[in-house]
Structure formats: C-alpha cells, structure tokens
Design a binder for these strands. Structure first.
Length: 743
DNA sequence: CTCCCGCTATTTTTT
DNA sequence: ATAGCGGGAG
C-alpha cells in the first residue's frame, strides 16, 4: 500500500485482518467467500476505493456488477463517501443494466437500433404464444411458460438457435428448435431483446467483433462482481472475455446463499473459480457481525446438511440471549395472528416495526398477514409482489410509449391495438399482418403507410382512428413534447380513460388512479431528468425491481419473500410457513440438487436475523381453494432440538389472547393492495426524511404553488399525498419525489 | 365482433 | 379463490 491517506482511511472503516488482506491484495484474481453478515459490502467498497486511490485507476475504467440496482446505488454512494469525490463514471450496476448500456452503444453492430425494446416476462409470453400459433403447435402440449423457461435456459448458457438445432436429434427437440429459432428471429425483427438477450448478445458481440472486445477490454482495467454465486454461464463468459488473461478480477460471493439456480445461476461458477482463473487468491470471511451466536448455531446446523458446498462455518464475537423459537400453529390464520401478537409485544417493549420482517416462500402467503395486520392496526410494507409496472393498465400505457420509441414492436402494438375496443379483432389484425408482410415492415408501420381504403368492413373505421392517433402522437414524439403531456393526450384521444370511467366499478376507479399516478411519475421524472428522453425512462423502469425502491421505514413491518430478502438484515425475523411442500417447494422436493437450493433459501432467511428469530409452521393451510393438511418442513429435522425452543400454540389461547387487542375500526378491503399502500395507517403522520406530512397540512410545490394535503396513502418510499392546490386542482403526488415544502 | 359464461390452472422464487 | 382464457350466443 503506497498511499498514506488511503491507509488511514482504511483504518477508519475498521476491517478485520482477513478483510484487510482481501482489500489490499493486488497480485491477480481474487475470490472472496463472504458468509452472511461478514462485511461483504464493506470489503467491496474498500476494494473499489483502493483501486481508485491506491492503484490510481479512474472510476470509469472500473466495471462492477451487483445483484440489484439498489445495491449498486448504495455502493456508489459509499465509495464516494469513502474517497470524498463523486464517481459518476464508475460502471456499477446489475449485469443487465451494464449490458444494456453497452448494447445501446453497439446496437448497429448486432443489427439492432439503439432504441431496441426490452421485453419482460409478459411480452415474452405473448411472443411465445404468437410463435406457437404460427407454427400451429398446441399450447397444451407446449405450455408457453415452459417453452419460455427452456428458451431462457438456453440463452443463459449462450446456446444459439443454430447450435441447438444442430444438436437436436429427436422429434420433440426439433419441434422445440423451430419455436426457439422463430422466437429469436421475431424478437430481432421487432428490434427487441428479452432479459436473457441483454447478457447473451453482449457475449455474442464480444465473440464476433474482436475489435469491440479489444476496445472494452482495454477500457476496463478492473472487473468486480458481487453475489458471484448467483451468476449464470452467460455472465461468466462475459466476465471471462472482459478480463482475458490479465487477472484483474475480484469476485465476492457465498455458495451457501446461491438461490437462483432456477433461473440459470450456475453455482459451479464460484466453486470452480480457482480453476478458471489460475493463480487465484482465496479469502474466507467467516466472522459474522450481524447475528447472535444462537442464530448462527441454528443457521450452521441447517446448512451443514448440504453436500455441494465449500466448507466454512460462521462465528461471532457477539453473545445473545434469545434462543430461536419454533412454533407450531393450527392453521395459517393462526400463524398470522401469532406473528401479529409477537410483533405487538415487541413493539410495546420498544422495538419499532421497521426492525421486524416476515419472510415467506411464496408471494401468495402474504395475503393472510396483510389481512391480520390491517385489522390489528400494524402498519406494513409489502415488498415485491405485483409491482406497479406490471399492472395491466400501466402496461397498456407503457406499450403505447414503447411503440413511439420503437415502432417495430409488434407485441406492443397488438397489445393496445383494440384497447379500448374499436372493432379491431383477429380478422382486422390479419388484414394488417398481410400488409405488413408484403411491405416487410412492422404492424404500426403498415398501418401508417395505408389509408382507410386498404381495409374492409368494420376495421376501416377502427384503423382510421388508430392511424390518426399514432400519426399525431409520433409527431409529438419527434417534437420532443413532454412525455406526460403526450401520454395524457393519447389517453384522452383514444378514450382509454373514458373506458374505465364509464365502468364505474371500484376496480376501474383504482385503475384510473394508477394511470394518474403514472402520469405524475412521468411528469416528475421529466422534470428531474431534463436531459433525458422517453427511451431513458422506459429503460430505467424496465430494469428496476421492487426491492430497488424499497427503503427502510421505522414505522412499518416488512413483508417479503425470502428471495427478496437477500442482502438485507432485520433485528427480528419471522420465518413462516416452514412446511413440506412449501419450503421445500413441492416441485423441488425430489431433486437432491434443487432440495439443497431450498435449504439454502431457508438459510438465507435465517441469517437475515440480527437478534431474534421466530420460525413457524402450521398443521393445516388454506391452499388452492381448500384446506390442506401440512407437515413440518423436513429441514427442521436437520436442526438439533437444543438449538431452539419449541412451542405448540393452541388455537383457543391464541384467539383469546389476540382478541384482547383493540380491533381496528376499518372494514377490511377485499380489493387488491397497492404495494405498501393498503395498510390501515396507525399513526396520523408519516415521517420521511424528517418531513412530517399529515392531513390538512399546508404545503408548497415548486410549480403548482400552495396547497393543502387532503389524503395520505402508502408508506415510506411509496408515501403518496393528494394535494388540493389553490387553483382548485387536485394532484396525487409521490412524497419522495415531489419535494414539497411545509407552509 | 363483442360479450358473457363457465372452465381451468394457478402458487416458487426474478433480472 | 380467482384471474384469465376459450367457446358459444347475440
């Protein structure tokens, strides 16, 4: 180490000897096994800072892949705080967003334009359906989801349709090969990539363009990868190409926390790292700074039953007094009641709701907890689940915007062609398809190129309307009209909002609200990103997940899946639904490798806990519309009884104890819950960055002027305010973004 | 072509 | 239980 300033800064963040060694080593490839809570982020931050300050590498020459955008953002902030200068140039993000960035730049080389669409699952399913129809294959014998899963598997291993076709040697494989080939061809024709393409195409780009690879390889002086155990083969190939034989690579991971095998993650990447990168220096971080020894005993006992792992064992210097609890409840409703009771007890003892978290295997399990918490007046945040951007009405709006950016996108076109209904059904679509085929262009382009005479029957009028709509919208787009104004115009002209307004149902009402929220978000985004365009907005939202937006809140209990919880920590954790068939999941119960992944998932859940860990299972559970008997998870057999306290909760005592709690007056709503917005507020005001909003509060907005808060919904990052402004207008604002001042 | 009824699968996890 | 889909009627 030759920079004294850095050396003292390094002292300041307090690293143990192993961590220090990991940071300061500079002789080639490095693999750091970082168990749960062993200060992985700290090491990674210090490493990047070390490269910049001590090794004098410019931030823009560093390529750092993290698992979520949130992690990337935090890492960037920490590095900046550490070295004291901004690092905008640092290439840090998820593999997907980093690849998208490269591909937008090099799109022409790959036969795309830089405004290519990114297809999400929903778009992919639609595309697969379309292919199956074209190839006259039955959806029953080839379920789109399964087809997609196989396609994704191939792409994540960088197996091209040509390569697959050559290896296909029976009827079924040949049949599938046609589907795969057509699917890829169509995506390309539509100037679209799916999530897997972002990775695979970057690999292909480097594979087929030596000059491009050379340029990037020279550009990036160092490659770092976080959560390396969850990388897939495409990501490995990408890293391998970028690094070449220079050995300038640093990866951090924990094979015990590999939980994404089902989406192509290749645990061998980390287990075979040393073989792939000769001369690797391996460090093992085993000192845990998060949990009590009692929690680690539980976790270690569990994970030691896995065979496919590198040997290690977490320990901590911290003591602890609370033994882990295992509780058996009668049914799922009881379980939620019991958890709620524990939460309220802890809360009374001075622990804020935000320090607690309920973790489950499947999203569907959140329902009961939401119900019970709402009634008990416990504020909660549901992370994940159906995200805002996956809602039907939002996808419709976005489809329209995406079409303006990429008019080749037939999937988007078909989605909104007849929404609201304008008499354009399958027949009409066929007419248009023929025209598109003849001109070798997309559906939208075909529509724009023909006047009404080209169509017959009812389609005539419908297409004329649609054409008008797009012609003016495209003009707006070319003139760079503000995106929110543009969308607003479209929604009005197309009658999209009228469609829901005339419906009058509660559901339609909430859809309109959501659309308004999108308009708001769009307006705010536009205001904050004046240099950027619609295409940037679309990319941002397509690669952002719910966890990325999650912010720790003091006043709400967190609800999420165990997958979502990776990388997070909470003082108290409730692991619920530990039953055979749920965890481990029924579909993974017979495959030893998959079973190990399920065990790791439970391990990840348990190691989120800092002080208290409550585990529970039930005797019967409401599933698939009926009550099913359940047995405790087989994983619980792995754990010696001495490690936890067992308790059997009798139905009647639970109900009695819980019945004494004051019931909230609110009528339980059966309508869908907006993430984080459905909880009945327990307190009147919400704190957010030290700003307290409450009903009736007078506020000042930068553009709308003075107004009064007339409604509050959601929590934390999702806190929404309805403000009645002086000019009489009523706006729904996202508190986090609106930057209101208190009047 | 659209609407409505009844059938079906869905619940694994996500960039 | 429920959303989403296919099939049949209007």
């Amino acid at each position: 180490m030759n920079n004294p300033a850095f050396a003292s800064a390094l002292e300041a963040i307090v690293l143990n000897d192993v961590q220090k060694e990991a940071v300061a080593w500079d002789q080639g490839p490095q693999l750091v096994f970082a168990g749960a809570g062993t200060g992985k982020t700290r090491v990674l931050t210090a490493k990047i800072a070390f490269l910049i300050q001590d090794k004098k590498i410019y931030p823009n020459h560093i390529f750092a892949a993290t698992f979520t955008n949130k992690a990337a953002r935090e890492m960037r902030e920490r590095v900046e705080a550490f070295i004291g200068i901004p690092c905008e140039g640092l290439w840090i993000g998820t593999f997907h967003s980093l690849c998208a960035r490269i591909l937008r730049k090099e799109a022409a080389r790959m036969g795309y334009t830089s405004s290519f669409s990114i297809y999400d699952r929903d778009d992919q399913i639609r595309q697969v359906r379309k292919v199956l129809k074209e190839e006259e294959l039955d959806e029953k014998s080839m379920p789109p989801r399964q087809v997609l899963h196989r396609i994704s598997g191939l792409k994540s291993r960088c197996i091209t349709p040509e390569e697959y076709d050559q290896a296909a040697n029976n009827f079924l494989e040949r049949q599938f090969s046609t589907v795969y080939t057509t699917y890829c061809k169509q995506l390309k024709k539509q100037n679209a990539m799916d999530f897997d393409d972002l990775l695979a195409n970057t690999v292909y780009l480097f594979r087929s363009h030596a000059d491009v690879l050379e340029a990037y390889r020279t550009y990036f002086h160092y490659v770092l990868v976080d959560e390396y155990q969850d990388t897939n083969i495409a990501q490995f190939k990408l890293v391998q190409r970028l690094v070449g034989n220079r050995g300038n690579i640093f990866v951090v991971g924990d094979d015990d926390q590999s939980i994404y095998g089902w989406r192509g993650a290749h645990i061998e990447n980390i287990l075979n790292f040393e073989r792939r990168f000769p001369g690797t220096r391996v460090c093992k971080l085993e000192q845990n700074y998060r949990s009590t020894q009692l929690i680690l005993d539980f976790a270690n006992a569990l994970i030691s039953h896995n065979t496919n792992r590198s040997d290690k064992s977490l320990w901590t210097a911290a003591g602890g007094k609370d033994k882990c609890k295992l509780i058996c409840y009668r049914d799922d409703r009881n379980e939620a009641d019991g958890v709620a009771r524990h939460i309220q007890e802890l809360n009374k003892a001075g622990m804020s709701y935000g320090t607690m978290c309920v973790l489950f295997r499947t999203n569907a399990q959140s329902r009961v907890f939401e119900d019970v918490f709402r009634r008990a007046g416990i504020a909660y945040v549901l992370v994940g689940s159906v995200s805002f951007y996956e809602r039907k009405e939002i996808k419709d709006c976005l489809a329209f915007l995406r079409l303006l950016v990429n008019p080749q996108d037939d999937i988007c076109f078909e989605r909104i062609m007849n929404v609201p209904a304008r008499g354009l059904g399958d027949k009409a679509k066929e007419q248009l398809m023929l025209l598109a085929l003849a001109r070798k262009c997309s559906l939208l382009q075909a529509l724009l190129a023909h006047d009404a005479d080209a169509f017959t029957g009812r389609a005539r009028k419908g297409f004329a309307q649609l054409r008008e709509l797009f012609a003016s919208a495209l003009e707006f787009y070319r003139d760079a009209v503000a995106p929110d104004a543009m969308l607003e115009y479209v929604l009005k002209e197309s009658g999209y909002l009228d469609m829901y307004e005339s419906e009058g149902s509660e559901e339609a009402e909430s859809r309109i609200e959501n659309v308004n929220e999108l308009l708001n978000t769009l307006a705010i985004w536009h205001e904050e990103n004046s240099g950027k365009g619609l295409a940037d907005f679309l990319e941002e939202i397509s690669l952002v997940t719910d966890v990325d937006k999650w912010n720790r809140q003091d006043e709400s209990v967190n609800l999420m899946t165990m997958h979502c919880a990776k990388g997070l920590e909470f003082e108290t954790v409730f692991l619920v639904g530990l039953e055979d068939g749920l965890l481990p999941s029924q579909q993974n119960i017979d495959d030893p490798a998959k079973l190990e992944e399920e065990r790791r998932l439970l391990y990840v859940g348990a190691t989120r806990a800092m002080k208290k860990l409550f585990c529970s299972y039930v005797e019967q559970r409401f599933r698939f519309g009926s009550i099913m008997p359940m047995l405790p998870s087989r994983f619980l057999d792995d754990i010696p009884k001495s490690v936890y306290e067992f308790e059997q909760i009798d139905l009647y005592t639970t109900v009695a104890a819980f019945g004494q709690q004051p019931q909230a007056k609110t009528i339980p709503q059966k309508s869908r819950t907006v993430p984080g917005a459905g909880a009945a507020p327990k307190y009147e005001d919400y704190s957010q960055d030290d700003v307290h909003y409450r009903m009736g509060q007078y506020v000042v907005h930068k553009t709308y002027g003075q107004g009064r808060i007339v409604n509050l919904s959601g929590f934390g990052a999702d806190l929404r305010l309805t403000v009645l402004f002086q000019d009489g207008s009523r706006k729904k604002l996202i508190a986090r973004l609106a930057k209101l001042e208190l009047a």
